[in-house]
Write a protein that binds this DNA or RNA. Structure first.
Lengths: 116, 116
DNA sequence: TGTCATGTGTACTACATAGTACACAATAAT
DNA sequence: ATTATTGTGTACTATGTAGTACACATGACA
């Protein structure tokens, strides 16, 4: 599923219950032109900027990491984490590339907050 | 240290031993104009593209993850790894943000190749 | 039936990215 | 001494990013 189609699906589902989720009104709340949101939803333009995607995620109650990923982007806070220690995280990520979900999850679970 | 200054320092050090590491010759080998590399080294322009940085790292025997980080970029292969499972890696990275180096290293060491 | 809101088409724009092309003065090599 | 090589200044360009502005036809609804 493309970014646009996904947004349209989600928005239309909410729209059924809440008439304030029209293209126009959502566009106004997230601060873009209605025609632009319309084009985004029909994949007539590339997905919007990270900032706009984040506002859209907020507005639609979606996970912004997921939405950003659909747009081929990585959240800038994650990028910043990697940039602090690029070699360390590069090694870790490449090792985890082919690991199954549960392995990554268990690694994450082991990191109990500030446990070092 | 900026990206440009770092490149200049590294290149000039090699240049002392090997006269083929002039701005012009390095530029030619990595496939850019000499004036462009010159501007890069003096931070007169933004760091080059990922592809160019990678060739430069190769040419100068430097770690490309590190050079990319100095340029504020994350290697596209790492980005792709995250994009495959954005929520999983988002959780992991945010948990590791404040972890000390050795903790991250030991997490990586635990992941013995294909150990699942 | 007239008004209002809806989605969308067309045209345009500002700024960033990633460079090229060429000329020139200074320095190094033969 | 002159030739070659070096680093760099100036000017220009193509493509991508992230939108805006406005008009228009359609459908809802009071």
């Amino acid at each position: 599923m493309t970014f646009g189609k996904y947004i349209r699906t989600v928005r239309e589902k909410i729209f059924k219950e809440d008439r304030s989720y029209s293209v126009r009104q959502v566009a106004q709340r997230i601060g873009v032109e209605p025609s632009y949101l319309s084009k985004i939803e029909r994949d007539q333009v590339a997905p919007p900027s990270e900032a706009t995607i984040t506002r859209l995620a907020q507005e639609l109650g979606e996970d912004s990491d997921l939405l950003l990923a659909m747009a081929g982007k990585v959240s800038s806070d994650l990028r910043d984490i990697i940039l602090q220690r690029p070699q360390l995280f590069a090694e870790l990520l490449r090792k985890l590339r082919d690991a199954p979900d549960h392995a990554i999850h268990s690694v994450a679970r082991e990191i109990r907050d500030g446990d070092w």
